[in-house]
Design a protein around this nucleic acid. Sequence first.
RNA 1: UGGGGAAUGGUGUAACGGUAGCACGAGUGGCUCUGGACCACUUAGUCUAGGUUCGAAUCCUAGUUCCCCAGCCA
Length: 622
Amino acid sequence: MADNTAPSARHFIHDLVEADNAAGRWGVWPDSGRPRVHTRFPPEPNGYLHIGHAKSICLNYGLAEQYGGRFNLRFDDTNPVAEEEEYVQSIIRDVRWLGARWPGMYDDRARPAAPDEAIKAGVLFGSDYFGQMYDWAVELIKKGRAYVCDLSGDQVSEYRGTLTKPGRNSPWRERGVDESLDLFERMRRGEFPDGSRTLRAKIDMAHPNLNLRDPVMYRILHQSHHRTADAWCVYPMYDWAHGLEDSIEGITHSICTLEFENHRPLYDWFIDAINEGRTDDGSGPWGRKVHHPQQIEFARLELSYTVMSKRRLLELVRDGLVRGWDDPRMPTLSGLRRRGYTPEAIRAFAADVGVARFNGVIDIVRLENALREHLNRIAPRRLAVLRPLKLVITNWPESGDGAVDWLDAINNPEDVAAGTRRIPFSRVLFIERDDFHENPPKGYFRLFPGNEVRLRYAYFVRCTGCVKDPATGEVTEVHCTYDPATRGGDAPDGRKVKGTIHWISAAHAIDAEVRLYDHLFARPDPDDLSLSGSAHEPGAVPKNWKDNLNPRSLEVLKNCKIEPSLVDAGMAHDAFDIPNPDRFQFERLGYFAVDSESRSGALVFNRAVSLKDTWAKIARKG
RNA sequence: UGGGGAAUGGUGUAACGGUAGCACGAGUGGCUCUGGACCACUUAGUCUAGGUUCGAAUCCUAGUUCCCCAGCCA
């Protein structure tokens, strides 16, 4: 993942890791002798990954890579109610696409026989540790640190107390060890209905941190699991399971987001409870001590003009407010990928925003800039006209030998190695509707009657007039004359033009559909329900975050004209069907990627991001 | 009102008792066959009030504001 698009910015976690390394806290890797740094990314397979997860992946994988450590991809799949195989597949693809690598993963170059299974190579699952977790739970019961509680869900929360009032002990708290043992075993065997009992840690019902008020460790769930099927009728809660998963894998730095800070004492309590009666050399009554990772919290990523919670993203998908998890307007990795984002751009963005403990909101233009920066360097330039207006060169031959002129065009001014291509020029062209004004605004230096501009890579043309629809007054055709001496775009007499516009030869143009995107939400903060009213019904007050969706987030242009060299534009797929669309800069317009719905003969492009538009800024100011 | 965190230009992030820096944005100019890219310059900040110190964003005290926690979700 190390590349020059993601300079490693220093942050407080580097300091912590380096302090640990200097102190020899985690020992060394046997093979390299380097201090052990072992991180992980632990998603729950209950939704698609989004750009916020990318920050975490880059952080965790980046640390492992930087310190010569290891990185695990592990599913935290402890709640079968919400989890699905589809999510497992998408998450692995996204992590792989981003560039993270883990021990045992399938090599990119190999063509696996069964991609759906092969992609899981080296991927870990918390559910694989259910047996070990169960044994440790039994151990805690035996040590008098856990008990089976018969309280209902409502009663448990009632007994918990409130933020300011202490809770009360469960009447089952002092139940005998043998009885709890028996009950827990029968819970596991499925003798009791869902919700009838739980296994709870015996800590302190008056603890000021609510997480320590005898938290539930196991609940009864007669629910088939995507991996363990019907093997279990009890499933561990996150707080119990998560730290153990990290412990089992030897994770040194368990990096998570700020809201889990309150859980750290519990995470530590569980490991300490297991280690009670254990020793480093295994001589204690309970054997050898288990590994105790260090949890470190950082601020999750928030972005303006979008939402970043899985619950809300799922709601957008389920309500049909977007076209699916990979809708190019979504902040999901699959959406960004379809939109045209590159892993490099996302990594550079993650490095750019940094890692800290302050919960702020990143301006989404930072993400867009990261993409521009990468695509500016690598995207081949092409000519495309989104809103075509016919331009006739009245002094150009209509037919015969000189009717078509093939001109050299530079593929990428940022990369000379990209070379050149030839584009056809002829009498009738299409230009961008925006590039002609019969009565130009102040400061406008494109085409208007009497003005001379350069047609990119072609000729200087001077506007001689236009044709309008008598009924509507709409301009239907612009007329120009060209200067033969300016072929290639330079005037031998040294005269200059202010404007250069793009064009497509009408006779050679390919039709394409282009989808333009704007921010998913009309306001920087979708939760902002104040102010001037709903984006959908001006004047109406938005009632919830969904009323702040941007009604203009998608604009479909069906009559676009693109240069003939784009006929073969498409997308590649790697061995695991992760798509990699061709991406181009359509000159003066922005960066565009081939959409997954694009077909030969019916090309569809997504605008990933526009070019910076200084003229729009000038025009706005008047 | 209990507990846990956090406050540095418009935004985000550095500075680890010693010149408040960087990026993005914004503004100005240069350059340009993309009103792109690039280059230069400018703008603007330590939450408040005390204290310690030769010296405080940093240490201390008090306050203010914001975030998280009362799932058998993660």
